[in-house]
Write a protein that binds this DNA or RNA. Structure first.
Lengths: 208, 208
DNA sequence: GCCTTTCGCTACGAGTCGTAGCGTAACCCC
DNA sequence: GGGGTTACGCTACGACTCGTAGCGAAAGGC
């Protein structure tokens, strides 16, 4: 529930910020991303769509970068990991979900843009990490633990430190690269092949 | 040797474009990317650095997107695939090279940005594909053929259609995600683990 | 030597940025 | 219910970038 900017010091009396305005602004931002894309999205346009003054936006967000991160972050909350009975099915399920999210025009145009900006903006990178990346990574952690409970993976893999991070980078990286760089569809056939490749690698690592 | 914009129709007499200006502009663009990053790079600034008029830039490139793609494309020519004796060593070598390229501030800030732009600009996507993506993909093709010659991979893998594409998305995607999204170092330990994972998956696929 | 094209330069309207200042509105606390 | 405090809408502003137009001059092909 992190609010826009850091709002901790001495929250005494005074008019509280409108929660409705927050929702309207974020919704307007997503709409603007769909219609205009990242590069043509302007703060003034978002303010107009949301029915608020431009100054209100700047009171809550430092700029376009932070606003867009918050606007798309909620979309990543939709990602879930239902138990499909096997590690293979679980991986396929999360890959399909993630691919569907990347197909949406809001995320498609915004995700790479904010990551590009974050390469020169450490606070922004941290915001992306906590708002977007960590939420995805939890799915990997949950999937691994579930697979271990099923006995599909060894309980204490040798040198497990960073293994979750590796799996996460492979899954998320491959899907993003397929969808946005290669710009080819993440269809059932691709998902099947990718999952088979990853699962084969995990099995080989478990034997060693 | 594709020149900036499409220059095919009726190239009769007249003053030819300065090749030196082209080189100076692309060099200035890379320098500006290092110092300013993608978002603060302006066409006027690049023109000033290159010692040419701003109008000269617009005569050759449609805008910032196309200019930056051309400026960073040449960096991807440095990628090579020397024979290191085994598929494992070859993969590790290309991963290290690619990671080193992504560590450079020019590519780090530019690559994600132009990909983000390309999601809403089909001609730009095509330019990226031919100038950057295909050059990387060739390394995967060469590595696979070399491994087949060594006998490390079956000569005619079942349903090989799109396998190179899959491997490419996995390798490039994982490295990019590690370096730019997770923003953690692609060190020797990570490369070793990733390569082992990928190689295990390939071996499992070969057995099936 | 003529023709064609590029070049540097200047200037321009349009658009965006981020902020300042003001009067008003909404809420908390006493 | 009155103060005090903060958020809000609105307007206006300087600074900056964009992409283009117009000009005279320069550099090559034929």
């Amino acid at each position: 529930m992190c609010r826009s900017s850091s709002r901790s010091p001495s929250r005494t009396g005074g008019r509280p910020r409108s929660a409705a305005a927050d929702a309207a602004i974020l919704e307007a931002t997503r709409a603007a991303l769909v219609e205009l894309g990242w590069s043509k999205l302007t703060m003034g346009d978002v303010a107009g769509r949301a029915g608020v003054a431009k100054t209100t936006l700047y009171r809550r967000w430092a700029g376009k970068n932070e606003l867009v991160v918050d606007a798309v972050a909620v979309l990543f909350d939709e990602l879930e990991l239902p138990d499909r009975g096997s590690l293979l099915a679980d991986i396929e399920g999360v890959v399909v979900q993630f691919a569907a999210l990347l197909e949406r025009p809001e995320t498609k145009t915004a995700l790479m843009a904010v990551i590009a900006e974050s390469t020169r903006d450490e606070p922004l990178r941290e915001r992306i990490r906590t708002s977007i990346v960590e939420r995805q990574k939890r799915l990997v952690l949950a999937g691994r633990q579930r697979a271990q409970a099923r006995g599909e993976l060894p309980d204490s893999p040798a040198s497990a430190t960073g293994t979750d991070d590796l799996i996460f980078d492979v899954i998320a990286g491959a899907v993003v690269h397929r969808a946005l760089v290669s710009a080819e569809p993440v269809d059932a056939e691709w998902v099947r092949r990718f999952t088979a490749l990853l699962l084969g690698g995990l099995a080989a690592a478990a034997q060693a």
